[in-house]
Design a protein around this nucleic acid. Structure first.
Lengths: 99, 99
DNA sequence: TAAATTTGGTTTATAAAATAAACTAATTTA
DNA sequence: TAAATTAGTTTATTTTATAAACCAAATTTA
């Protein structure tokens, strides 16, 4: 059974980029994600909310140097979803390789 | 420079599945693609047209056993685009592997 | 042999998603 | 103190994906 359904929450360029970054760093600020992904703030805000609603990431808001700070980190659920997505899309890419 | 823009024509589950199949077989009927992708005929028809308009595939219509037959095959442009897409998305997937 | 069904699609309409634009609120700078 | 900047959110618009409806010809069934 080759081509499985790709998790629609992850099969989105920006959300995939966000999760990809969070997998590596385990915690990142809104501004960092914005800079790394080249997304607009609005788009980033919306996509982060979707990932949060899905339980893929956690968002903690605080203040740093008087400015609001939005910290994001991936959850174990998000990590699992990402791993599954990586496995699934490899069949589409005709990749035989392991992670 | 890690996260490049993903070709929006290929970053679509169904179109990616179509191209993935065509890369392997080099020629396929509409009905075969429909069966393999589990797509509805309408959706498949639309996505094939988009791939054709982009020059990623060629479509040849004929008749076989009295019924219309739509044959699809990938072009060199489509092949290149697919290879690029595969390379690009690997950065998102945190894969270090070669093809 | 006429009606119903199936095959192999296309076209059009709807739902969902991504994105951009507009806005908020506080802070800093000139 | 007015303008610009930071760090976002909310709302509106555009784009995309998908489904539903449709079409023509061929085949089956009654």
């Amino acid at each position: 059974m080759p081509l499985k359904e790709l998790d629609p929450l992850l099969h989105s360029q920006l959300r995939l980029a966000i999760v990809s970054l969070l997998v590596s760093v385990e915690e990142a600020e809104f501004t960092y994600l914005k800079a790394e992904t080249n997304a607009t703030a609005g788009n980033l805000s919306v996509q982060l909310q979707k990932l949060k609603e899905a339980g893929y990431i956690e968002i903690e808001k605080s203040f740093k140097d008087n400015y609001p700070q939005t910290m994001c980190k991936i959850t174990s659920k998000g990590l699992k979803a990402f791993d599954t997505y990586v496995k699934d899309i490899q069949h589409y890419l005709n990749l035989k390789t392991k992670k």
